[in-house]
Design a binder for these strands. Structure first.
Lengths: 191, 191
DNA sequence: CCGTCGATGACAGCAACTGACATCACCAGT
DNA sequence: ACTGGTGATGTCAGTTGCTGTCATCGACGG
């Protein structure tokens, strides 16, 4: 049985998204995913820590890109502007994947456990971003708050981008999301 | 066996926090929690949806208080200032419970599943707060972003408040956390 | 005294996840 | 060509979170 097709991970991820879409996350068993990928349940758990993780394979790459861009932003840039650079950098990870993103997000939003998992990925990003900001000399709690705010902008921007009617580019939506945050947190104005 | 001591829920919550503290969340079985509370495993699941939920009994009350305060803030107040009112209203839920909060938070931070659950509670708050802001006439995406920012301020402020050496009042820490956010999101400054 | 109702116990069962061990293809070194 | 090691997989048994179902018991109103 040492014979194996390449790309086992990818086949598992694909099979999982299909099944979660077709019959729902809870109604899908890991054994079914494994079977569709031509593998066994045990092997699924060797590739993914649990039934949720299979939907979040790209999270690491996304976080790295975000963090690196923030860390390498212009030295003179204010924290919020370093975040802006990160938000722009992250944009092209999703190039040409709007439809895929919609499918995946629909599955996630339909299930609380999956939403939990997404939130902890975002929280991990936030922690890492705060670290990057500290590396730029930003003190706490400003670093953490800026990171949280940046992740909020990403989250809201992304959701706008995958909205049914939306046509604009992700990078533009992100810019507008960031501008909305800036205006919202500027006190003494009625928006 | 219809005989039952009052406060079954409370006893379960207490037993759970104790056991999670003593031997860790994963090393504790639901059967053990139930036994310490003088009940059976089945009864545990009648009171709490799952093994995590037992630590989040107060989440509803907290959210209601936050949301109500935002909804009832001065009509003329800008969104961010309505959030400030909410943040202040929420502080006295924790009055005299700093030590308890530390114990509970230590358990949560030590386990990823529990952190996930906490994050989804905060996300629920954020959604509800955005709704309250919309009720005040705030448009999207400003409402969502303001809500997310407010929750971030709460989260960071709370963590500062339970830090080992911290002595200040929660309401004061919250104020400072909010001020830090405002300065952080004001572009064109080096902080 | 009776019937209903709410909280619980008892039991069976599913599915997520883990540990341990065997198997097989492949590859490097001899 | 033989050999030993390595990595990916299969197999199997077991624990535990969680659910459905039914029975039991005490309280309470009539």
């Amino acid at each position: 049985m040492g014979r194996w097709e390449p790309n086992a991970r990818g086949r598992l991820a694909e099979a999982a998204l299909e099944l979660y879409s077709e019959r729902g996350y809870e109604q899908t068993t890991v054994a079914e995913i494994a079977k569709r990928a031509g593998l066994t349940e045990r092997t699924f758990f060797r590739h993914y820590a649990d039934k949720r993780e299979v939907l979040f394979d790209g999270a690491n790459a996304l976080q790295e890109r975000f963090v690196d861009a923030v860390a390498e932003a212009q030295e003179s840039a204010a924290p919020i502007d370093a975040m802006a650079a990160g938000l722009q950098a992250v944009t092209d990870v999703f190039a040409g994947r709007r439809e895929y993103s919609r499918r995946r997000q629909a599955v996630i939003q339909a299930n609380a456990e999956l939403r939990e998992r997404e939130l902890i990925k975002l929280a991990s990003m936030s922690t890492a971003l705060a670290g990057a900001l500290r590396g730029r000399g930003v003190a706490e709690p400003v670093a953490s708050l800026t990171a949280e705010a940046g992740v909020a902008v990403f989250k809201v921007g992304f959701e706008l981008w995958i909205a049914p009617a939306e046509q604009r580019e992700l990078s533009q939506v992100m810019r507008e999301s960031l501008d909305a945050l800036k205006s919202a947190t500027a006190s003494g104005q009625t928006v």
